[in-house]
């Protein structure tokens, strides 16, 4: 077996242009984690089921374990590392997850927040049902989702400039 030829790939990640040579079979998640040292997106299954590797590619939620890096050539990407506000404070979603206890071990969190980020662009004022359906491609083993739903509702309210009304338990 001979060594595999490397091909150039370039993309904009969290507003920064990056260029590398990679084997064509390199998965986007490995490119992000190992080439760019963006270890926020995680690997939970490598089969597109768990969503821990979710990032945003050209405005869409993408499971980066099932995309080759070369498929993202020329694309605009956002990862969890690009989610905080410009002044370094937590964004509405990040704050929502903390305030509503929407995370425990933190392993699904970067993917979950990225999915929620895109969801709120698609549906700025989602119902609970829309949130649950909207994050159903992201698995969490710790929280039972109830507080994740609240975290996203908190962020939606903050982004819409409305009061967050925690549903009665």
């Amino acid at each position: 077996m001979s060594e595999i030829e490397q091909v150039p790939v370039s993309m904009t990640v969290n507003g920064k242009k990056v260029q590398r040579f990679v084997e064509p079979r390199t998965l986007l998640i490995h490119f992000l984690r190992e080439e760019l040292n963006l270890t926020g997106p995680h690997i939970g299954c490598e089969t597109s089921h768990c969503g821990a590797c979710t990032v945003e590619v050209d405005g869409m939620s993408v499971k980066s374990c099932t995309l080759f890096a070369v498929q993202a050539n020329g694309a605009e990407l956002t990862t969890i590392e690009g989610m905080a506000n410009a002044d370094g404070t937590l964004s509405a979603l990040q704050e929502g997850f903390r305030q509503m206890h929407g995370l425990q071990c933190g392993f699904c969190t970067p993917g979950m927040i990225l999915r929620a980020h895109t969801l709120l662009k698609e549906t700025p004022n989602p119902t609970e049902e829309e949130i649950r359906m909207g994050i159903s491609g992201n698995l969490c083993r710790c929280t039972g989702y109830q507080n994740i739903v609240k975290a996203i509702q908190y962020a939606a309210a903050k982004l819409n400039g409305t009061d967050f009304q925690e549903a009665a338990e």
Binding site: R33, L38, T39, G40, P41, H42, I43, T79, I80, E81, M83, A84, L90, Q94, E95, F97, R98, H101, L103, G106, F107, T109, P110, I113
Partner: peptide, 16 residues
Amino acid sequence: RVEDIRFTQGKGQYVD
């Protein structure tokens, strides 16, 4: 939670 500051920013340090 104290932990959430790093976890919500993708700054947890897991083995991988």
